[in-house]
Design a protein around this nucleic acid. Sequence first.
DNA 1: CTGAAAGCGCTTACAG
DNA 2: CTGAAAGCGCTTACAG
Lengths: 365, 365
Amino acid sequence: MNKRQSASRPKRPADCRRIAYALKKKLLIHDIAKHLDVSIATVSLVLNGKAKEKRISDGLAEKVLRYVEEVGYKPNQLAKSLRTGKTHVIGLVVEDIANPFFSAVAGLIEQKALARGYHIIYCSTNDDAAKTRDLLAVFQARHVDGYILALPAGVEEEVRALVRSGKPLVLFDRLLPGLLTNAVVLDGATGMYEATRHLLGQGFTTVALVTARASQLQMTARHQGYAQALREQGLPELVQEIAFPQTPGQILQQMEDFFAAHPACQAVIFATNYLGVYGLEALGRLGRRIPDEMAVVSFDDNDLFRLYSPPITVVAQPMEAIAEESISILLAALQGPGDGAPGRLVQLQLAPQLLVRGSSLRPTS
Amino acid sequence: MNKRQSASRPKRPADCRRIAYALKKKLLIHDIAKHLDVSIATVSLVLNGKAKEKRISDGLAEKVLRYVEEVGYKPNQLAKSLRTGKTHVIGLVVEDIANPFFSAVAGLIEQKALARGYHIIYCSTNDDAAKTRDLLAVFQARHVDGYILALPAGVEEEVRALVRSGKPLVLFDRLLPGLLTNAVVLDGATGMYEATRHLLGQGFTTVALVTARASQLQMTARHQGYAQALREQGLPELVQEIAFPQTPGQILQQMEDFFAAHPACQAVIFATNYLGVYGLEALGRLGRRIPDEMAVVSFDDNDLFRLYSPPITVVAQPMEAIAEESISILLAALQGPGDGAPGRLVQLQLAPQLLVRGSSLRPTS
DNA sequence: CTGAAAGCGCTTACAG
DNA sequence: CTGAAAGCGCTTACAG
């Protein structure tokens, strides 16, 4: 409210400043300059590391830095951003921050961004295109410097506009159909191919795939890997797609129905971590023993899969690498050519790792 | 770079604007006003819902809104924030976003904040006071409107300064010693007391507690609940504190050593979710059967505990309520009295829920 | 090195 | 309703 009052009494800026100071309010660059008896420009240039360039003596520069440190002056980032056009904020969009895969990657990205002086604003899309459109607009209005995005299908136009606007962005986890941008994705087809081959190699001949909404490109890649492995052996596919949004109860029911309807099914692959979690719960309810009565593989690793009894075989994603590459590519683009030049396009495909555990091994009976 | 060029050629603002427009750059309020042939003030007032107040005709207001919607004009939030002092951003500080408890609460807070027009900037402290000090300073420099904080010990002074600055804040998960602020915490003492009573009621007489760094206040509350339950029965405590930071391997080793050193121990309570996860892994390595050879209870619920075999008894936190109350209290303070008045202080203590599952039941042998 | 000034894009009294 | 203007707190040529 003080702020508002000072705005309504433009006649007495000096007074206001004195009051603000008395209330231990924010120091301004003006206060620093005044106290050191130097110009505002000098303080600003020193603070922005342009002392050498502007031939400010080392002594003065150091004096400024020391005083700034001493009184804990922090430039107002809003003003700075408004002036420079840079916010040092990165917009991170994930499907769901409560999903262990995304929260792990988000944590790593945050850590790496912070180490390079960038902050993260994040949002979950819940795979909802309309919500995502809003989010992207809000991020734009907040002038984030760049984007790291795992997007639902249906926002291609918005992303195209974003690219045209010149803001760097990196897609991760999934591409968008028909869109050529920086991206860090997993080679999910190969991961799934290997997982399927592994199960076939164990002697399971009826291998089911439980997958998510087909409109996500990373899901179709995983499906392809599965399909190819089966095709090579002349075996038929057995696919259940779980449509969202549904309640946990409905999802479990759908899974139970699926397993009940296919008693001959010997093995199942869950295409993503939460499907795996639901799947284990459904199999538990049905009383199916793993791997004797149903061999199991899931995409994504987590504590549950690692410590489950038996431990669950997984196609693990290199989350550290996903985070590191995403942020590196983005920051390279940010510090890169600039001048509206399109710059270098980087599309990375990382290799998943099949971690074979007890859940997928043929019982030696 | 275009921006920078326009800044260096202040003589030709009109030109720059035309160029910007041609490049499909951001629309400005000036462009809207010009096109509609109304004043900038009119557009601004309509957009800020002050049309009635300023007696702008409904027809004109609607015309403005329609055009703004049509061309997708979004005010520059940086400029708006600089002027109004409000950013509509909330700083969320958690111990570790990759911890399921925090990621779940963060997801809920994000969702609820968004529904009320606020965005979240978040950071993980990793329970590091120095890092946290930096984070708080950065959040201040970014002028967040308010804070939701789960803090490590050792930043009391900074928080006190924050409170004095008049920015609303809500602590959650844990209080800070000697600090009276808005807070949403769990009644961990009662939760732990009930869990311990439950184990004693099952006939286990040697009940151990594995807890985390004692400097966190919520941990001491949990310890107290445990201690009281034992004291009432005249039983001794058996406590292992796991000090951080350590590698997973070291933590597991420490747990294994502890269990090996106390063969008489019949039951164990893990004071927080990640300790529970490590604990299950350690017990698994030692080949201890649950609950026959070791009854287990953990704080916090998650998929692993729910689906483990046997399912793990937990003291579950009401995460939905934690998120809802935290954001509600903060927003109430934000829209509250203002004028630097301290306003109402809210300290909430929520009740945990003991979910009894197989891991803590005396085997009926 | 300094000082004065413009400008980032808004909001908001103020006088009409 | 409008128009002109100040002001939020910075950065950065520019002329000295």
